[in-house]
Write a protein that binds this DNA or RNA. Structure first.
Ligand SMILES: [Mn+2]
Ligand SMILES: [Mn+2]
Ligand SMILES: [Zn+2]
Ligand SMILES: [Zn+2]
Lengths: 145, 145
DNA sequence: ATCCCAATTACGAATAATTCTTATATAAGA
DNA sequence: TCTTATATAAGAATTATTCGTAATTGGGAT
């Protein structure tokens, strides 16, 4: 059950020019789903648009991030990964491979929100709390996703 | 109140050769404290050892991470940052600059631990939970650390 | 429908970050 | 003190990303 996206609408809502390259990059991120790297995006898009320039993909990803259409994902690797899910959510990190799964839990969000309302952090105003939960997926023991 | 480190002991406890370069790199991370980049470490170490090779610093950082003497820090930037605090803790990310502050809260850790004991995640065994809390430090409004 | 132009893209060069290769040096155990 | 497996220095090679510039184009204006 993947969320439906009206890519052209999303771009125009941000007053971004609708170009074939932008549409394809955004489409790629939504289709691939699992937090792709820039390289993943380039490879994917080139399947339908073999001549797209790598520089263009870098540019577009930056534009999309600046306009909150996608997000950067924190990892311990030095390659950047992107996320088409812009609603606040958490991540499960596989300790055995580089798989990252989305984790949404509004009950937990509420617990945290309430906790920090009661227990403010000195000199710090919280904007967003994200959990990085690392562990092991039992399904794929010693096997990559 | 910085934690005292017996660097030579820490290295030998991991059966690592005690070399001046390793001692200085680890020392640098502890002294600088705030989650330095590789470049930060190189610059710092070169103040006392101007001829240390960049490649050597990269090697050493990798060795230290593998041996759990330091940790990598997740950020949205593509430069890696390192952390001399190996005990589990959370991070406050400044939205205005690249400052990262350690945040330790065992009460909160307990709340999370209890929560997930009651509410297991399907097919996933949690190893470690870290909060990435982003927001604003009131002290240095529109001013970098 | 056509025109226009600021915005975007393609391309390749430039830069930056990291890894690799190999000769030399050295920590630490015998 | 000797020995040797391990670590370092130096720089080349690779990889990732950014930059400069000329050509192209989306979409508003006419
Ligand atoms: Mn996600
Ligand atoms: Mn830390
Ligand atoms: Zn996995
Ligand atoms: Zn700051």
């Amino acid at each position: 059950m993947k969320k439906e996206h009206d890519i052209r609408y999303e771009l125009s809502a941000k007053k971004l020019k609708i170009t074939p390259q932008r549409v394809k990059v955004l489409e790629a991120i939504y289709e691939m789903d699992n937090h792709p790297t820039t390289e993943n995006v380039i490879d994917y898009v080139r399947k339908s648009d073999p001549n797209i320039s790598a520089g263009t993909v870098y540019n577009i990803l930056e534009v999309l991030v600046k306009n909150d259409l996608i997000k950067k994902v924190k990892t311990e690797k030095d390659v950047m990964r992107y996320d088409g899910m812009t609603e606040n959510h958490h991540h499960l990190y596989c300790k055995q491979c580089d798989y990252i799964e989305d984790y949404t839990n509004s009950e937990l969000d509420k617990i945290l929100k309430d906790y920090f309302e009661q227990n403010k952090i000195d000199n710090f105003i919280i904007d967003e709390i994200k959990l990085s939960i690392s562990g092991n997926f039992v399904i794929h023991k010693n096997k990559n996703h």
